[in-house]
Amino acid sequence: MKKEKKMKLSLPEVELMNSGHMACQGCGATLAMRFALKALGQKVALCIPACCWSVIDGPFPYSSLDVPIFHCAFETAAVSASGVKAGLEMVGDKETTVVAWAGDGGTFDIGIQALSGVAERNDDIIYICYDNEAYMNTGIQRSSATPYGAWTTTTPVKHFKNRPKKDMEAIMAAHRIPYIATASIGYPEDLVKKVKKAKEIKGTKFLHIFAPCPPGWKSQPEDTIKLARMAVQNAIFPLYEIEWGEKYTLNIKLKEKKPINDYLKIQGRFRHLTKKEIVFIQEEVDKKWERLLLCVNGSK
């Protein structure tokens, strides 16, 4: 008898996100949630502060997710999750994984105080930041995750963002939490693996997911995955892990680090940049990459 060939899926089959959500076409944040939930499974509770995701999920009385959600105040994602975790434990549920799910604004800016408190105490939650590099919910204003050179409505072309993106991983590493990882919707297997790993670790876990946003980046919806992969390949957003603030591991190694030009070119938010500015950005990316390699090599 002939052996039946079975197709092997590289991602968990479970689907906890449904159609009918409110995201734009080509939304990276939406894919991030879909993949994360595949890894987390059903026994999870989400705390979502103000961000695109507080809209994407759908208006009352609908929800596009098959998991419970606490829509919490903008600056409180991390500690809301700590509260939920404590509450669940006290009513006898010690299994449920509690996840804070916030945008870059809710993480890098307004929510950083509560997040720092949670991380310092090493509360047992997973914090996931999906990063679309600006305040998208309120119409594309700069955040401290907006990269150097980018246009937003509060960093107009004549006065584009002239400070680098905040190094959130370094800040989290300084808290000596058990697990930090960057991930990308362009690398779903890596993303799922990291979320699963985080789920098995006790203490505060911080995941930072790169999530392109066509309206905010002035890019084409069909380029979302491409942009996410390019950002890894050109080291603008390298994929790595940090354990206990010390042990760095690079997950996607680059045989050949690509130049950033092509990546910038297909996004309207960078269209105004001159050659000189692009050279400057490239230099900064190179320096940051070298610094990361030093950490990775130093960990061996």
Binding site: G83, E89, M90, D93, Q113
Partner: peptide
């Protein structure tokens, strides 16, 4: 009881809200 030693009153109330929603 679990005592969450938060970094601000703002977080104190936020934690209480999460815990209360979980039924505590």
């Amino acid at each position: 009881a679990m005592f969450i030693k938060v970094e601000s009153e703002h977080s104190a109330m936020a934690a209480c809200l999460g815990a209360s929603l979980a039924g505590a």
